[in-house]
């Protein structure tokens, strides 16, 4: 495999970019697709028809899955990778990138998704974990991965395993943005603290947050994560999306929030507009009008620890 996917921004990679033959699956390319999604909205869809509505609303990508998190929560049972026929159907009907979810640690599901031609794999806590100790070795793929995180240590552990994009975990399927806010603030706040640390403090800090020192140092130097950071988990309104952008994320995932609402297309369009114009409150006021009913939602405070998905993954 032509993978030269080591992390970091070593100068060797820029040399490789100039080679006269094609190189695929490189770290630059994996990170690069996520960079193209910045400032955009990635929408959960369960049918080709929903994918068409998402593209029409201005989504930058769709996440193909069998049940949105709100239904997984309601119906229970083991949540797995979607039926390949359904993923192929969605790939066939949209021109924007298609993502799909594999269970944490289930590298065979991930290899199947790669074989189907999906553009990004979400190793996701929304599905039932297949391995309670190990995440997928994401370096062993040409297709890039996105993973959820609640804090900087978790984000850097995933990047160390090869994740080329990070999202907050939030609390999927609730329509309650509080956990996405908590996780984005934790990740971005930890980076702000890191930027003010001396090197000797960084060694200890890397140990405390259980992250590889080299990635801690790279994050400190860049002043941001080495990969794109999106918000996810509980975003349901244009104002939620704009709030997350203000906190410093690069874009948003909207799961159940669109297709569990009264008027998915109108809400999808509004959330796309709000993500671009998050700094313009007149525009936010305008796009937030007359969107019909939002998803009903579940107050995260009413969930028991057992019912929360964000604790999955380590």
């Amino acid at each position: 495999m032509a993978n030269d996917n080591r992390n970091g921004n070593g100068s060797g990679e820029q040399g490789q970019l100039s080679r006269s033959e094609r190189t695929v699956g490189s770290w630059e390319l994996k990170k690069g697709l996520a960079q193209m999604l910045k400032g955009g909205v990635i929408m959960d869809v369960v049918t080709p028809e929903q994918a068409a509505i998402a593209e029409e609303a201005g989504a930058v990508s769709v996440m193909a899955l069998e049940r949105v998190p709100a239904d997984i929560r309601k119906q229970g049972g083991v949540a797995r990778m979607s039926d390949p026929a359904m993923i192929t159907g969605i790939i066939g009907c949209t021109t924007i990138p298609v993502m799909a979810k594999a269970r944490i640690g289930h590298f065979v599901e991930a290899k199947i998704l790669e074989a189907l031609g999906v553009d990004y794999i979400d190793e996701s806590e929304v599905l039932t974990p297949a391995d309670e100790e190990h995440h997928i070795d994401k370096h062993d793929f040409t297709v890039p991965f996105v993973c959820g995180a609640r804090n900087l240590g978790e984000a850097l552990r995933r990047i160390n395993e090869g994740a080329a994009m990070i999202r907050s975990k939030g609390e999927a399927g609730t329509g309650d943005v509080v956990e996405a806010v908590r996780h984005a603030r934790a990740i971005l706040g930890d980076i702000r603290k890191l930027k003010s640390m001396r090197r000797d403090e960084m060694y200890t800090y890397a140990k405390e947050i259980q992250a590889p020192y080299v990635l801690v140092e790279e994050t400190a130097d860049l002043g941001r994560l080495p990969v794109v950071l999106f918000a996810a988990g509980g975003i349901a309104t244009p104002a939620d999306a704009a709030l997350m952008m203000h906190l410093g994320v690069d874009g948003v995932f909207v799961g159940s929030g669109i297709f569990k609402s009264g008027d998915p297309k109108a809400r999808g369009i509004a959330i796309v507009q709000a993500t671009t114009h998050y700094n313009d409150y007149k525009i936010l006021a305008e796009v937030s009008r007359n969107l019909g009913d939002p998803m009903v939602g579940i107050n995260v405070g009413s969930l028991s620890a057992q019912e929360k998905l964000a604790g999955r993954g380590w």
Binding site: T23, E114, G117
Partner: peptide, 15 residues
């Protein structure tokens, strides 16, 4: 022609 080289797995770098 959009997405002319294929999907993400076909994305590439070249001098």
């Amino acid at each position: 022609r959009r997405n002319a080289f294929g999907r993400q797995a076909d994305s590439f770098t070249m001098g």
